[in-house]
Amino acid sequence: MNAAVPVFRRSRTSKVVDRLMRGVLWAIALAFVAVLILFVGAILKQGWPVLNLGFLTKMSETLDAGGGIKPQIFNSIYLVVLSLGISLPVGLGAGIYMAAYAGQGRALRFLRLCIETLAATPSIVLALFGMIVFVQAMGWSFSIRSGALTLALLNIPVITRVTEVSLLAVPRELKEASYGLGATKLQTILKVALPYAATGILTGLVLTAGRAFGESAILVFTAGTNASAQFPDFRLTVPGETLSVHLWYVTSDGTLPDAREIAAGTAAVMILVLLTLNLLVRLVDRAIRRRTR
């Protein structure tokens, strides 16, 4: 402590309370660390005996034991890619509009309100919307296309938000230099601002992919709880049960004799995928920071 800083004499109770509350705050924080370790540990431990190459590469069963999760892995990836393909252009466009065109006034505030509302809308409500519009009104029934479009609704607000924030963080000098060299607004956005913001947007994209990968409520009501018997089945019109839906369905349906094992294995696979994604984001982030430093 600096010599010039006055030293106070505190009452004993205030000292005791201070020490006690420091302990409480540390305990709460460490409790969350413990919860996470316990959680991941339990899921991996339950799933470990089930995890083997056969489980990952066999087709799933609907009535008999011994099924794998190959089609579900495919459907999960396929739906995430499709939904990102739909939501990325829309989210980027809306984000660019908000950062570069909407001004600072009422229009921007209203757009942000809409994005926040969409982001906070429960996925079961999006599922109902997708069910009314895509499954029933368009007559697409439970299919990959219904699922991908509804899942895109979940991604759009996140991508928009990330794009807007990353663009706003672009240094003013960079844009001014671009304009000073005679670039148009579009050129400045595409060739200066977006490349600078790309890493932020990319990180957001990976997180969005993780969220879409884990989503279940939306897909139960739009992509259905059946997986195609063909593999790989790229058709957009067939039902596409994903890993998360499979996990939920075998658990709540209960016709599979080995539902418990299948669910445990699926959960472990999902946790491993998400841990890998998380690590990926961290590594990319670190690499970029080292390069820019």
Partner: peptide, 19 residues
């Protein structure tokens, strides 16, 4: 820790609760 907790899918939370 918080990043990971928020990234865990709800069905995995569900199966943890259940089992």
């Amino acid at each position: 820790v918080m990043d990971l907790l928020v990234g865990i899918p709800s069905v995995v939370y569900g199966i943890f609760g259940l089992t």
